[in-house]
Nucleic acid binder design. Structure first.
Lengths: 167, 167
DNA sequence: ACTGAAATCTCCATTGT
DNA sequence: ACAATGGAGATTTCAGT
């Protein structure tokens, strides 16, 4: 129970999961700390198969990670910004360099490569506007090869879930 | 251990947390299933205060939820789309109606109200382009009061983390 | 594959400093 | 406030069906 997930086969194709596996996943997505016992009662199975199915899904990489979600405002991180970035040059090394920096900056909690006029979309989290200004001026814009940067400020959170459901 | 978090004071002001609380949070964010014992060894405290601190942070709402992250591709959800929406009318009831629908649609995993020319940004997850087309035509566009809709397709995931770190 | 039970380990309340 | 202890309950393994 203390150990974190080890194996994580490269994110490729879908794994075959039956209805019971999906039911287990739904419960785990809602609460990473549900007990095997509780799951087994809800889906009418004994603990052994439930435990084995969970282990199997951890090893096949269906289950990526168990995480704790922290309220950003409660730890004084009050600003959420979507930031669009285009690079001047699109060589492989130029992109790799940018990606390396993205992974170092802990203000950047998400980064996607996207279609359209920009190359990347970043989700940035900061204490306040001063902190974002500092990030923008002293980190992002300091990068060589930086093209346009455009910020969209998030005014309110309507929905945030991690529950993946088919259909 | 089986129970989910109950209290969750409305998301308002920062809560005072010391260095040890933050260290506990870092460990819990990385792995929601670390044991109290393991945390207590890493931060050089006995289990009692660690357990009490965690309970305190659950009750004050600093810890929002323990969740399991599932690999979307492994369960055959292969398309991730950022979707911008503007409404024609901005009355309170028109907005509330839209928000209600957003919460019903499980394809929408995130929704923010944003600054700029659009009103909302949605993150939508689907099996494939056909499924997204169906969502777009039969759900989103069917909404009354819908203004412009613009889709940005995510081609690659560079970074996705939930680890909040002070800056 | 699933059941049931046994063995091991963790949680968590109590007690004491 | 923190350390140490011990019973309750969970996980995890192993036999059997």
């Amino acid at each position: 129970m203390a150990k974190s997930i080890k194996k994580e086969k490269s994110s490729e194709r879908a794994v075959s999961l039956d209805k019971k596996d999906m039911a287990i996943l739904q419960l785990l997505q809602q609460n990473a700390r549900v007990t095997v016992k509780e799951i087994s009662e809800k889906i009418h199975l004994s603990t052994t198969p439930v435990h084995e199915r969970i282990k199997g899904m951890e090893e096949s990489g269906v289950i990526k990670q168990y995480v704790t979600l922290v309220d950003q405002n409660k730890i004084d991180l009050n600003l959420l910004v979507i930031c669009y970035v285009s690079l001047k040059e699109h060589s492989k090394s130029a992109g790799a360099n940018f990606i390396k920096k993205i992974n170092e900056w802990h203000q950047v909690i998400e980064c996607y490569s996207i279609s359209g006029e920009f190359d990347f979309m970043l989700k940035v989290i900061c204490k306040d506007m001063n902190a974002y200004y500092d990030f923008h001026v002293n980190k992002l814009s300091q990068q060589e090869n930086m093209g346009n940067v455009q910020s969209v400020f998030i005014m309110g959170v309507i929905k945030e879930t991690h529950q993946l459901v088919h259909g």
